[in-house]
Nucleic acid binder design. Structure first.
Lengths: 263, 263
DNA sequence: CGTCTTCATTGATCCATATCAATGAGCACT
DNA sequence: AGTGCTCATTGATATGGATCAATGAAGACG
């Protein structure tokens, strides 16, 4: 894609290259997951002994809808598309970012997956046999709490998305999406779209064509999209038109279980 | 509303009347929650000592969006509307049925509610101070597992709804909704809509008018809606047109944590 | 360099769905 | 009976967004 001389705030995560601390072993990988920090070494050992560390290339199918989970999968690096499928049609339900669990809700209850999972950016996964993972949940309280926090964040992201879909028009969804990408800065911002446009369109619940048209229409609010770079001379107009709602657009902290220290 | 002579499969849950075993005390109420059955008496005692049993009339506001949870609320009987609100507009995200926890995701992480909760049918609630509940989660492993199962079911319902919204047209959503109400029977079925039409419309993500029109259009498939009763002479046509997808329309078992016996 | 492929844009068109407005039905209250 | 209320229906109309089809731009590859 073309690239102008803009150098402010750019930086799409490069597919394949990851700057994360490389985990040499499953044990080290588990150790490095911040929201597992309160889990005992013993349990981490037990999990690690059952675990496989996997590097999975972009495009790989992790699992399909209706499959019964074979593994609990920790996403350590890279990213994972979660697709809802119905016949020919499919929709991007979420794009999972590390570090997270890949649909623990299905694994916990040994229920069929409701979504198809595909690797977006080459991923580092840690796989634990589903049964072993459930056993660990049954044995280790701290692990259970950690997963509870993780799942709570996932639930809240779903609620946010349902509100976004049902309470906003296409233009608003696109506008808010872009504004949320901008961050704090107010003048002469340039940000790269983090993923391909057709993925954004699907996630926002519209066709690519509609998304494309909505992007051009953003010019009215001072947002110019050239290729995968969005340029904003003055963000105030856009911010005024597309007021972010912290109860829709906000981020969800994964690590909900804090120690007593937080109070 | 008018009522024909149809007597098959009728029975909207009567607002206010509940046939459930009346819990005289918080302790008994907790005891009666099947998915807490593995939680120790000690913890149930501890919770009960902090808990208040409440009977709340229809229409009451339980909490608003953006509020920080003051209580963990168990829905023992009745039902609760969860509304996503944005300015003037609001949408019914879910209608909670007993026995369930009311948005534990917010309570667990001490995060602002993303939804407004209102009593639909007069409800029996068990309230536990949020902090006390989090402490109990921190102390009791079995409770933690039970909540994990509860939350997993809630997450999966959200995913189902997002798929329903993004992958189906209005006609399909309405058709599948009605077909899922029919149950097994094939001939001469009459079922009452469980809730008012404007609530169904909001939950399915459409305007009341559109819902109303979609209902009349169901005649084409052998589904007649008269007042709040849907009558079906032969369900085969409707079932053929509106094939239920178990990964969208299925029910979610709340109690995911089974004992070893299940295997 | 040309070709193929993938992804995005753009235009023309159609249809689904929202919106606005009026009417109607059932129900509570006086 | 009459009034007002809520909820649902129905019609007319507008428009948002999907769909179909064609074009374009940017890599990948031989």
């Amino acid at each position: 894609m073309e690239n102008s001389s803009i150098s402010h705030r750019l930086g799409r995560p490069q597919v394949g290259a990851d700057g994360l601390p490389q985990a040499a072993s499953a044990r080290e990988a588990l150790q490095g997951i911040s929201w597992l920090r309160r889990v005992s070494s013993k349990t981490l050992d037990a999990l690690a002994s059952q675990a496989v560390l996997h590097r999975v290339p972009a495009g790989s199918l992790l699992f399909n809808q209706a499959e019964i989970p074979a593994f609990a999968q920790f996403l350590l690096a890279g990213s994972v598309e979660l697709w809802g499928v119905r016949g020919e049609a499919e929709t991007l339900v979420e794009l999972l970012q590390p570090v997270d669990l890949i649909v623990p809700a299905a694994v916990i209850g040994n229920q069929p997956y409701l979504m198809r999972a595909r690797i977006y950016e080459e991923a580092h996964l840690l796989l634990v046999g589903a049964e072993a993972f459930r056993d660990a949940l049954a044995c280790d309280h701290a692990l259970c709490r950690a997963v509870l926090g993780c799942l709570a964040a996932q639930f809240r992201r779903q609620v946010r998305m349902q509100k976004n879909l049902k309470l906003r028009s296409v233009e608003e969804r696109v506008g808010c999406y872009l504004v949320s990408l901008l961050g704090q800065a107010d003048r002469d911002i340039a940000v790269r779209l983090p993923i391909e446009k057709h993925l954004i369109a699907s996630q926002l619940g519209m066709s690519r064509e509609t998304f494309s048209r909505a992007l051009s229409a953003m010019g009215k609010f001072g947002i110019l999209v050239r290729g995968d770079v969005i340029e904003v001379a003055d963000a105030s107009v856009a911010r005024a038109r597309f007021t972010l709602d912290p109860l829709i657009d906000g981020a969800e902290p994964i690590d909900l279980i804090q120690g007593k220290a937080i109070r």
